[in-house]
Design a protein around this nucleic acid. Structure first.
Lengths: 325, 325
DNA sequence: TTGTATGCGTTATCAA
DNA sequence: TTGATAACGCATACAA
């Protein structure tokens, strides 16, 4: 691969000048610029980002740690994060923790070694200490791991309220919530909290089921739903922790001969494409995923530039009515 | 951040020795090793991968170019690729081309500049020239862009045969295929080819609809299905180009009052989680996605190490019967 | 407006 | 067995 020296030689200038042209710094005559550009062209020259990063001590790479890209919510989020990183000239290093603490810790090390400029983390393991220690721009999703560290999330409590209120208004009298493990100190637990409080205030019977581990185990959802209908056959309203769970709820209703929304009404959370893929389409609480992705990137960039950023970044949700309510 | 020199100073050795310990090269006494290790520990030292990469001219990064991570197939594939890259000590740079030629070309440049060790590309734009030119380990998915460049794909033709044969065996007499744009020189077009040839040989009426652009536009699928049922109301068997399309087909059947599988039978392709999420669960042609991801990574690594690799890497598919047939 | 010298953090080539 | 020195490719302070 040709280096800046090769270009300099061919253009008949010094390496410094080529560097200047490359970075558009200082005063350069148009003629000289052209000469350098065509030399680059001829040699098919590409600046070595490794060397640039090393020299500038800035890599223009953002590390993204998530539990599982293959989950609808995270794949969409990843897509938006990539999009906005790209728009800002940043590259994205993808770290799929797979809910594995060891892997996550190793990835944190890898990212530090790779001198990424910042880390966006949407992973849900309990290893928060490792994040606190590293002195790097950081943004988290749905998780407040330390007072100073900025987080992005949707308005989980309002979302929970909207969903529960809708179910009650539609006439549901036996409500169920199905979600992930509540002991994790996630902000999404506020959805559950809102569910409980809203139902209680309205004097509506309600129950709740959660996966007992920290995995997004699909089979766990199926088991949970089976258990729900077995223990409480009269359930007529379900608030699911995600669209994915909602889709499983819909499936479980069908399999047990329950009509949706006649017998059971269902509300999901997220607003992924899963909702409109189903028939009836799933009513959900839509998170502004693109805004969340964009904001996460922006918060990193601002920190990189030494600016201070707000800690709480709570974005509004919107009830998106489908046909399951 | 502490450097190798800081560690050397603290351990009372030279930087070279620290480097040796780091890379476990040469003869080192256990005592010395320990001294260096604890110095690293104390300083919370992390080797600078940028400098290492520059020095070794090897980045241990693989670039992944795909059209859209948020699509089920690609998010699962990405997940497996990440997994196996990680297992081999490689990092993954995620490039979402979004079917945008400009963006894809810019990403190719970025990856070259970043000195990635290889590129896995599952993108579907037509810019193959750019890939041919760059002299880098490359592996493609479902696309043969040049005789010498290795590609990974499932056995598309057999998959198309299996699907079509199943529909016919189940009694379907008016078949439809719905897929992406066939002008793209994709290997997945073999599914379509198999569909046509199998139906023709069996003397079964068949038609086919394709999106006219290169996008994975969800609305396009809905329009296509609407058109299909309008023009050919008697369709009783659909072979979809992906599970996603199959899911839309299922939805379209429901919305138009068609029973599945009684009135219309559906077969998808891929074997993503979408299949089991639906009710009835979707019959599909399962691609060995993990194998494909693992193989793509392996083919890159082998090329990095100067080994020659086979050009055609066609993996077997499997009919996975759900309840839509 | 352009060039020289030095540093970024690491590895590799010598020599001791 | 260890260390000094020169690359790796680029950016920047300083000189001219």
């Amino acid at each position: 691969m040709p280096t800046i020296k090769d270009v300099a030689l061919k253009a008949g200038v010094s390496a410094t000048t080529v560097s200047r042209v490359l970075n558009n710094r200082g005063y350069l005559s148009e003629a000289l610029k052209q000469r350098v550009y065509s030399a680059m062209e001829e040699l098919n020259y590409r600046p070595n980002e490794l060397a640039r990063s090393l020299s500038r001590s800035r890599s223009n790479i953002i590390g993204l740690i998530i539990p599982l890209v293959s989950l609808p919510f995270f794949s969409v989020l990843t897509s938006y994060i990539e999009q906005h990183a790209y728009l800002n000239g940043y590259k994205l290093l993808l770290c799929n923790s797979q809910q594995d603490k060891i892997k996550e810790l190793e990835y944190i090390d890898m990212l530090r070694s790779s001198r990424v400029d910042g880390i966006i983390m949407g992973s849900h393991t309990l290893e928060v200490e490792a994040y606190r220690q590293m002195n790097l721009p950081l943004v988290t999703f749905d998780r407040q791991i330390s007072p100073g560290i900025p987080y992005v999330c949707s308005d989980n409590y309002t979302g929970g309220q909207l969903a529960t209120t809708l179910l009650i208004e539609k006439g549901c009298r036996k409500l169920a919530h199905i979600g992930g493990h509540p002991e994790l100190n996630l902000l999404s637990n506020l959805r559950y909290k809102a569910f409980v409080e809203t139902a209680r205030q309205a004097g509506i019977w309600h129950t709740s089921l959660h996966t007992d581990n920290n995995s997004f185990d699909v089979l766990a959802y199926e088991r949970l739903l089976e258990q729900l209908f077995r223990e409480h056959p009269g359930i007529d309203g379900i608030f699911a922790g995600s669209d994915l769970i909602a889709a499983y709820a819909l499936k479980a209703c069908r399999e047990s001969g329950r009509r949706v929304p006649a017998d059971v009404r269902i509300v999901g959370y997220d607003g992924t494409a899963l909702c409109s893929l189903n028939h009836p389409s799933i009513t959900t609480i839509r998170q502004p995923m693109e805004d969340m992705g964009r904001l996460a990137v922006e918060l990193i960039l601002k920190q990189v530039e030494g600016m201070s950023v707000p800690s709480a970044n709570i974005l509004p949700v919107k009830l998106q009515e489908g046909s399951t309510t």
